[in-house]
Design a protein around this nucleic acid. Structure first.
Length: 503
RNA sequence: GAUCCCGUAGCUCAGCCGGUAGAGCACUUGACUUUUAAUCAAGGAGUCAUGGGUUCGAAUCCCAUCGGGAUCACCA
């Protein structure tokens, strides 16, 4: 049995009394809406036509009771608008119960109502709907947190506890308007990106989430089981190998926006499931891809924020291209003064030691370079910067560099000290690819849980021939964090992963 | 996984050198037919996260557990 608070009991009693008055608190029929709060507030002028008879619906969010008349605030999907409810207008006859009983006593904050009336401006200058008819649309049985903003713009009693906001995102969205704006922007980021790719003729596709072999990235997977096939399956950590199979199959450009799953730590920049966009375009290389990414992100920033500049924490980020390009070795030299490009493993270990970077015996040359980069460079890359030409050991799916031995044609895009995109000239030499997988297998045997598995069918696909191709992955959640100036991934996911509420 | 902080009314928080709970908003009752954090008067509301312990007595001190946050490690 559910424990009910005093206020919850009252609302249930009010629900019953509404029924006793012959009013259905959950009517089945539709309610015609001819206007929204935002539209009325934006377009209404004194004496304008078209506002004599409007119908709108939403939640009752605040009531200022003046006796025989009330001002209230109605919140619909577009925002809030003041409504004016006068007893003798909604109850023109002898029976005043709709006003005195239903509206003033039995309706509560959070209830859905529909109103019909005309728009006017009060002497305080507030655009207001003068209600002539009021319809109960849905009764709420729990009371919402009341967030108020005073004349100076100070917010009082904000619903701020992250745990409650994430667990009850529906409440968060109702009472915290700025939260809704973040998610509207997130949605817009994805739709602008999709249109950008579609306009270029690339095909949006869907590839398996349940995979027998988890390939395409270095990460620990979630494992599950299919009963009929009687075999284990993995939740995908990446879709790269499937998208490349489609390039083999003859598509010039394919992309997928979808969830990936990684069984690793959770914190304010990692959720076990996250959204990535991966795209593969035939006959292109990573240099071409850098230009494409600049255009794409600049377009998104402009369309989402109305400006290519975005405030992110203390920084103002300029998303208009071209972005600075810096090889990994040059980046390390710039931030440490040390040229590591000719160093062997022992010399790199010495560099790490001098910088007090923790290393272990299993780390090879590539990993050591990556550690130095992560420790000394990454956090300084505030404005969008491409880091190019990575050590081969860390990147088993990228093509060897056309002119620099030991490196691959890869770039990552860093913004505000975080990686948000990763791209290669894709490895399409099936024999080289088989050797790279073999190397991963050796790492796995040494105990590296993140090493990539060998995918025999993917190799078979490459053996049929894949055109030169450039591929790119963008972390959508992180891009959304940047463009909405949010410091936690939980703020750009409707329902971030949480432990169960009760044991 | 490690360390630190937090969990008291629907919401935001106070109380924490131990003496069985307070404020504002919300809620209830009443007044007010252009108010806007409406106002005014009166009132009700809490297994103080959970379970143990110390004590005559625990929201308060101690231990454990659960949940969350921050920092670190791993990673996108």
């Amino acid at each position: 049995m559910q424990h009910l608070s005093e206020q919850e009991i009252l609302r249930r009693e009010n629900l019953q009394k509404i029924r006793e008055l012959g009013i259905d608190p959950y009517p089945a029929g539709m309610f015609d809406i001819t206007a929204t709060a935002a539209h009325i507030k934006e377009t209404y002028e004194e004496g304008a036509t078209g506002f004599e008879n409007v119908q709108l619906a939403g939640r009752l969010m605040m009531v200022r009771d003046m006796g025989k008349a009330c001002f209230a605030e109605l919140q619909d999907s577009s925002g809030r608008i003041q409504i004016y409810v006068r007893r003798d207008d909604i109850c023109p006859g002898e029976d005043k119960s709709l006003f005195d009983e239903v509206f003033k006593k039995l309706l509560d904050i959070g209830d859905f109502i529909g109103v019909q009336g005309f728009v006017f401006r009060t002497r305080m200058g507030e655009t207001t709907v003068h209600v002539q008819q009021l319809t109960v649309l849905s009764k709420a049985l729990r009371n919402l947190p009341i967030v108020k903003t005073d004349a100076e713009g100070n917010v009082h009693d904000a619903f701020t506890d992250p745990e409650q906001r994430y667990r009850m995102r529906y409440v968060d969205l109702i009472v915290n308007g700025q939260v809704k704006d973040v998610f509207l922007k997130r949605s817009r980021i994805i739709s602008v990106m999709r249109r950008f790719f579609d306009d270029k003729g690339w095909l949006e596709v869907e590839t398996p989430i349940l995979q027998p072999i988890h390939g395409g990235a270095l990460a620990r997977p979630f494992k599950t089981f299919h009963n009929t096939l009687d075999m284990p399956l993995f939740m995908r950590i990446a879709n790269e190998l499937y998208l490349k199979r489609l390039i083999v199959g003859g598509f010039d450009g394919v992309y997928e926006i979808g969830k990936m799953f990684r069984n690793e730590g959770m914190d304010r920049t990692h959720n076990p499931e996250f959204t990535s966009m991966e795209i593969y375009v035939a006959y292109k290389d990573y240099e071409w891809m850098m230009e494409m990414v600049e255009q794409c992100i600049e377009t998104i920033a402009r369309e989402v924020n109305g400006d290519t500049k975005t405030q992110v924490g203390e920084q103002v980020i300029e998303f208009a291209g071209p972005y600075r390009r810096l090889s990994m070795f040059d980046a390390i030299r710039e931030h440490t003064g040390i040229d590591i490009s000719e160093m062997d493993e022992a010399a790199l270990r010495e560099v790490c030691k001098n910088f007090h970077i923790e290393v272990d015996a299993s780390m090879g040359k590539g990993k050591l370079i990556d550690e130095i980069f992560g420790e000394k460079v990454e956090k300084h890359l505030i404005q969008p910067t491409y880091i190019t030409d990575y050590p081969l050991e860390m990147t088993p799916l990228a093509k060897k560099h056309r002119s620099k031995p030991g490196l691959v044609e890869r770039f990552e895009l860093f913004v505000n000290g975080k990686e948000i995109a990763n791209a290669y000239s894709e490895l399409n030499d099936p024999i080289d690819q088989r050797e790279r997988f073999a190397e991963q297998l050796r790492l796995s045997e040494r105990g590296d849980l993140e090493a990539m598995s060998l995918d025999e069918d993917f190799l078979r696909a490459l053996e049929y021939g894949m055109p030169p191709t450039s591929g790119l992955g963008i972390g959508i959640d992180r891009l959304a964090m940047l463009l909405t100036n949010q410091h936690a991934i939980q703020e750009v996911l409707f329902f971030p992963q949480m432990r169960p509420e009760k044991p």
